[in-house]
Design a binder for these strands. Structure first.
Lengths: 339, 339
DNA sequence: CTGAAAGCGCTAACAG
DNA sequence: CTGTTAGCGCTTTCAG
């Protein structure tokens, strides 16, 4: 491996000069710069970032903590983060936390030892000791897709309430009056907000929220199916359902079908997220689109900005708009037999 | 930030001893070890891995190059790689290459500068200059899911031929005689092998491969749909189709439907990969399962083994079995009108 | 514009 | 079992 010493010797300059042509080329005379560069090429030199990091204290890598990269929603966030990071010379280290506090703690500790420049955190918890600690340690940090209940930090979010409102409103506009909601556990801020949007739409339409139409389940296909079954066991079953995310929505559709119902003929279904699943499912899913990829980009850009301008300006929450994407899983109700 | 010097001073030992309790605790007497550990706890010490890496030449991070983390197939590989890496104290740096040579080159160069301990490479190309260079530089490297045409390297693969054979055979067993294949571009080794499996099954059944039943398209939903259309324009249309992967299969189903066909009633469809898409699609997709997650794990384990035993033993190709997962997208043909 | 020199925090012989 | 002493390869004052 060739080092700046080799280059310096071969070019007849000091290592300081070599370092300068690497980092501050304009502080070096054109002539010596050229010479040094030539030698670098000739000796096929490649700087050792680890060594640079040790003295400069910048590793140019950031940690991305998310529940599960296998979930299309987070995969897309990761893609956005990685693209934007790469554009600025940063690498991203992926960490799958499965929403387990223990794992998050271990990852954070490891990432700190690796001296990452900052963290992007997509956690499920609304209250989080680990995040508090990171924040206390002054490591740049931005939250994505989820917030914390009582600690305001840099974050990139989507207007969940509005999105849920749009979804429910769409169902209402189609003529539905008996609309269920299947949501993720309400320990997640986004779930709470989506539920609020649903409520608001119903209330505006002069409808009361009915307890028996509210389902709360973990966010997996299997649980969605289960919810679909329970929905169909209601008598009468709802004519429409708003699911808290695409996975649940697709599960619900499957569950409804397994009980002999048809989507959208018997019951309309709306999802949330607009992941690839919504596009691929049959019928294609009407859903609320979040600019997921863009969120990954924005969070990363925000983090990098923080890293560059040491100015500890104040906390910045970016809230993006969600919008309804109407596909084939919704239609007017056949009849309106609402209790 | 507290360093081993601080610990050494506070514990009344040398930095070497501190370093030892960190890396070779058994080389230190129980008593001083305890003391040092106590001080570490007290001073809330956290080792600086960057510094350790500079002198030890091990960064405990590995690069994972894949086309696109957003593709469920690669996301699952990434998950496996990350899980296994984490289990051994390695972090994984994700790089999305989009199969672009230029991007791959840049990433590899950056990863080398970052002194990653090794690389896991999922590339589409069958012949690859970048990989040759990495290999020449003696950086531990394992290929996953794809091979190179004329360079045998450590790799974790699936028996594509056998998988494709099983898929086609399943269709044959159901009574289909007029079976199309929609495959990814044949520049990818896996595509070629899958085509071969298809051929073999047909030939064993005494059927000739018909050129007009062979489609080759990029692996996206849109192109799959397009292929579905073209399939239905044949007269008669095939009674079954084997698609080179799940995304294409789902596209084909959509395309068939758009032309008024029913799946599986009019035409049966088999996919390949068994990603979440197969589970989520309607009808659930009969497909060939690859142990994707496990492949990620195995590739990583193989890499880590290489890192640990410096023994340059010989190249090792692991070939996993694919198996058919029968779901609802296939059934016997209504009638067998094959030309 | 350039060079000398002092680290960054840790590992790894080598002695003892 | 423990301490001393060189580095690892690069950045960064501080002089000149």
């Amino acid at each position: 491996m060739t080092t700046i010493y080799d280059i310096a010797r071969a070019a007849g300059v000091s290592i300081a000069t070599v370092s300068r042509v690497l980092n501050n080329p304009n502080m070096v005379s054109e002539k010596t710069r050229r010479r040094v560069e030539a030698v670098m090429k000739e000796l096929n030199y490649s700087p050792n970032i680890v060594a640079a990091a040790l003295s400069s204290k910048r590793t140019y890598s950031i940690g991305l903590l998310l529940p599960d990269i296998t979930n299309p929603f987070f995969a897309e966030i990761a893609r956005g983060a990685e693209d934007e990071g790469n554009r600025h010379g940063f690498n991203v280290i992926i960490c799958n936390t499965d929403n387990q506090l223990e794992k998050e703690k271990n990852y954070v500790s490891l990432l700190l030892q690796k001296q990452v420049d900052g963290l992007i955190f997509a956690t499920a918890e609304t209250d989080h000791q680990v995040i508090r600690e990171v924040h206390a340690k002054n490591l740049p940090l931005v939250l994505i897709a989820r917030e914390m209940r009582d600690l305001v930090l840099d974050a990139v979010l989507v207007d969940n309430r509005k999105g849920a409102y749009l979804a429910t409103r769409h169902l209402l506009d189609l003529g539905h009056r008996y609309i269920a909601m299947v949501s993720e556990p309400l320990t997640i801020t986004s779930s709470i907000e989506r539920l609020e949007g649903y409520q608001q739409a119903l209330e505006e339409a002069g409808l009361a929220v009915q307890e028996k139409l509210l389902f709360q389940t973990p966010s997996t296909l299997a649980w969605g199916i289960e919810a679909g079954h329970r929905l169909m066991e209601l008598s009468p079953p709802p004519t429409a359902v708003f699911a808290g995310n695409d996975v649940l929505a697709i599960g619900v559709i499957k569950g409804i079908r397994e009980k002999g119902g048809k989507v959208p003929e018997d019951v309309s279904v709306v999802g949330f997220d607009n992941t690839i699943l919504a596009e691929v499912s049959d019928p294609p899913l009407t859903t609320v689109a979040q600019p997921i990829y863009e969120m990954g980009i924005l969070a990363t850009r925000k983090l990098i900005n923080r890293l560059q301008s040491k100015t500890s300006s104040r906390v910045e929450r970016t809230i993006l708009q969600a919008e309804l994407v109407v596909r084939k899983s919704t239609q007017p109700p056949k009849c309106n037999n609402y209790p």
